[in-house]
Design a protein around this nucleic acid. Structure first.
Lengths: 233, 233
DNA sequence: TGACATGTCAAACAAACGTTTCAATTATCT
DNA sequence: AGATAATTGAAACGTTTGTTTGACATGTCA
């Protein structure tokens, strides 16, 4: 039960506190996640009173959803899925751009990095906010990738092989960000920041295109088992 | 500051409470993670008193480390990295077995499933326990995979292309488990449990082998750029 | 200026947390 | 049985959490 601000006609000139709360909340939520973040720490960084979050956003969860939605918008505005190529590019070129923008988006630094970090946590511990994110940006992006791979593979976008290849591509993109704590333990020399994006994007594109173009014909497992593709046991 | 149990000579016959605590803790930690798990809930499921955790394990964190170490041991005992192939198998066959065991290990149900779920959370929010897990099992497993890929690729195990290919393979394995909340939102028809392991393992093996065998020659980005492998911009 | 809505502040609230305390109970050994 | 150590139990401790309260400050419009 809280009083909704900004209810009347009189438009308040300065919502400076609200802006600073969003900024501080983005930092904290990205660092430690929703559960581990404390309202007190957010208000401390925003130089605001402890009651500020509840006054301006109602509760902690609403603030979180607002931050997540906002960070997704800025991340996709800065790095659209086909950044750097035009509409007449080949599907192979578009796929390369897709991979590169994907990595840039989640490996960016500063406030845009909040998106990648918050999404990593949403994978393990999803909140209600995830559903609206999927509907807004992620589902269209999945459709785009399905179309590209379908064109390269010469199969319909709903084909199971197309979907599995898309999984293989996206998995490589999210891996370096999500498993960075494990990677840097096993391979301390591996760079895992924005400066490594071009190296990683190049490998993922080459690896995936080579795989897609030379995939054994009966990828569909249910359809007549080919003796050559059959493993023992 | 707590009294170490089992200190004297008199060996207590029944550590039944301790066993039930480990079991209940595995359930709870796998479900909600370390921070969100409460000692009270663990003790409730173990039908023990609230003080039982501190008495038998000292504190909550020690209990967590004990559970994680134990779950890793049982997971690798049940699904060793090269399950199903013998030492004289081809590297390609071994790679297929590696992928299949990897998926079986993290998609298993019951108490073995704790390992996969706890590891997912360790990726996002690592604890001190992670280092010992890496040293015990994960580093040797990485060395095994590096050797397999190096043999197939015809390059030394320390080669950068070999390492990147290993990343591509492992990334596909962990993807289905770690991003399952996103996958099932985008593709509700995709099966993501133990029954789908053979389908997924087959695709990952085919995709990765096709990629490794048909990788463009100068995978190494620094060494003399080949005009054919060069993308515009 | 006075009235009123908007925003801020220190303080407190109620709930949940991990942990501790200490008496009661149980098992083990002489 | 009696003494001793191991284990359990109910209750409480001290913190931290998100949220609420009510006094106070600030702005705007009559």
């Amino acid at each position: 039960m809280y009083l909704k601000p900004y209810s009347g006609a009189g438009a308040p000139a300065h919502d400076e506190t609200r802006r600073q709360l969003l900024e501080a909340a983005g930092e904290v939520f990205a660092e430690v996640g929703f559960r581990n973040a404390t309202v007190r720490e957010i208000c401390r960084r925003a130089r605001a009173n402890v009651a500020a979050v509840n006054y301006h956003f109602g509760d902690k969860e609403t603030l979180y959803m607002e931050v997540l939605r906002h960070s997704q918008q800025t991340a996709f505005a800065k790095y659209p899925p086909l950044l750097g190529v035009t509409a007449d590019a080949t599907p192979e070129e578009k796929l390369g751009a897709f991979i590169r923008s994907f990595l840039l988006r989640i490996f960016d630094e500063g406030s845009t990095a909040w998106f990648g970090k918050m999404m990593s946590r949403e994978m393990v511990e999803p909140t209600e906010a995830l559903d609206s994110l999927v509907a807004e940006r992620l589902r269209p992006m999945a459709g785009l990738l399905l179309g590209l791979v379908a064109e390269i593979l010469g199969r319909p976008p709903r084909d199971e092989a197309v979907r599995l290849c898309c999984f293989s591509i996206v998995s490589q993109c999210v891996f370096y960000h999500h498993c960075r704590t494990m990677i840097s333990r096993l391979f301390p020399e591996q760079r895992l920041d924005a400066s490594a994006v071009d190296q990683l994007a190049g490998h993922i594109a080459r690896f995936s295109l080579a795989a897609i173009k030379h995939l054994p014909n009966p990828e569909r497992p249910g359809a007549k088992p080919d003796s050559a593709g059959r493993r023992r046991r």
